[in-house]
Computed example of a mutant assay.
Amino acid sequence: MKATLLKRKSKGDFLFDLMNYTFLTIGMLLILYPLFFVLIASVSDPNAIYAGDVWLYPKGLTLDGYQRIFNDSAIWIGYANSLLYAIAGTAISVTLTLFAAYPLSRKDFIGRNVFMWFFMLTMFFGGGLIPTYLLIKDLGMINTIWALVIPGAAGVFNIIIVRTFFQSTIPDEMREAAFIDGCSNTKFFLQIVIPLSKPIIAVMVLFHVVGFWNGFFDALIYLSDQAKYPLQLILRNILVQNQVNSSMMVDVESYAAKLRVTELIKYGVIIVASLPLLVLYPFLQRYFVQGVMIGSIKG
């Protein structure tokens, strides 16, 4: 069968497939190589990195950077904070998104277009950083977890995607049949709509987990207590300002040695910070394409 299909392909089709595979392979390498380089650099001798000798495999293999990272309490505190912010923020955001999208998807909801218009208005106009900061301050959320998870909890773009998914996946006939059997709106939403919406819920979870895990700007603005810093803010301080915790350098004396150790720690922290998302994505990947395609094209 395969041989027959291959024989039917014209030279133009073969050339087109060859170009596709070539460009996709080049694109894949361009995307994967930076992460691969960071990985091999995190276990290589910093002198070899400075000399440009590290580009395909590690040289001067060492785990000193990882040992210093895992022995530093600030890294573990940042890890715990990031997990807390990601879990709490994702739970709040996904819940609000589902609760907002479902009524907006119902044709019998009077005034849904008016509500949708107000939601979409926020996509084009915002108060700005200073008014937002003053609002967060007046609400007493400065230096708390709520400053990171509440202000951006409901994203209009995500609400539109989930609303479209509900419109294209949950037919009116199913709702009418459930109501005839005595099902209430709440019961229909919890027992029928939610179980049928696993793909889009998985997509929303992935979107929000990635957003909260990678976010550092809100923490930079609203947090002053270092014990509440997320991992990404600690990573930013290491990468941008070379602020490495002194506990990682207790046995390093010379300035040149400190620079080499700092280089190892930079690459190591990037890998440590990226690892949870790399582990999470394969479990949600099968839902990802399905949920996004249904939620953004149909309807």
Rank of each mutant, 00 (worst) to 15 (best):
G128D: 02
Q167H: 12
P199S: 03
R163C: 04
S197V: 10
G182E: 14
G152T: 13
L148T: 12
G128C: 06
K137D: 01
G211V: 04
L134M: 06
I180S: 00
G127S: 02
P131L: 03
I136R: 10
V149L: 08
P151L: 03
P199H: 03
P199F: 00
I142P: 03
E176Y: 07
K198Y: 05
I200K: 00
D181H: 01
G126I: 06
N143F: 07
P171W: 11
M116Y: 14
I159E: 11
I200S: 00
V149H: 11
V149T: 03
M123V: 08
F188W: 00
I160M: 14
P151F: 10
D138E: 02
V193Q: 04
F125Q: 02
F124T: 15
I136A: 05
G182L: 11
F216L: 02
I145E: 03
L220N: 00
T122M: 08
R175P: 13
I192L: 08
E173A: 15
D218Y: 02
L121G: 09
F217K: 02
L196I: 11
V162A: 13
L190Y: 00
D181C: 05
V205T: 12
A178E: 08
G126T: 12
L121H: 05
I200G: 05
D172G: 15
T122V: 01
A154K: 11
D172E: 15
G127T: 10
F212R: 05
A202G: 14
R163P: 02
L135T: 14
I150T: 04
I201H: 01
F166M: 13
A177K: 06
F216R: 00
I201R: 06
I192Y: 06
T144P: 01
Q191R: 15
Q191P: 01
M123E: 06
S168Q: 14
T186Y: 13
D218L: 07
M174Y: 14
L220P: 01
P151S: 06
D181N: 04
P171M: 04
R163W: 11
D172I: 14
M116P: 11
E176A: 08
R163M: 14
I192G: 00
A219L: 01
F165T: 06
W146A: 04
L190E: 05
P151T: 14
F166K: 09
A219H: 02
A178Y: 07
L121V: 11
L196T: 11
Q191G: 10
Y133V: 10
W146H: 07
G128W: 05
F119K: 00
M141R: 00
I130C: 01
V149N: 07
A154V: 15
M174E: 15
G126C: 00
M204K: 07
A147D: 07
L148Y: 07
A219I: 09
T132G: 04
V162Y: 06
L139T: 03
V156W: 08
A178S: 14
P171K: 01
I200E: 10
M116V: 13
L135K: 05
S184F: 05
K187S: 13
V149P: 05
F217V: 13
V193E: 02
P199E: 04
G140R: 09
D218T: 02
V210L: 09
K187D: 09
I180P: 12
G182N: 11
I130M: 10
F157E: 10
D181A: 11
K198E: 04
E173Q: 15
L135C: 06
V203L: 08
F166Y: 14
F119W: 07
S168N: 15
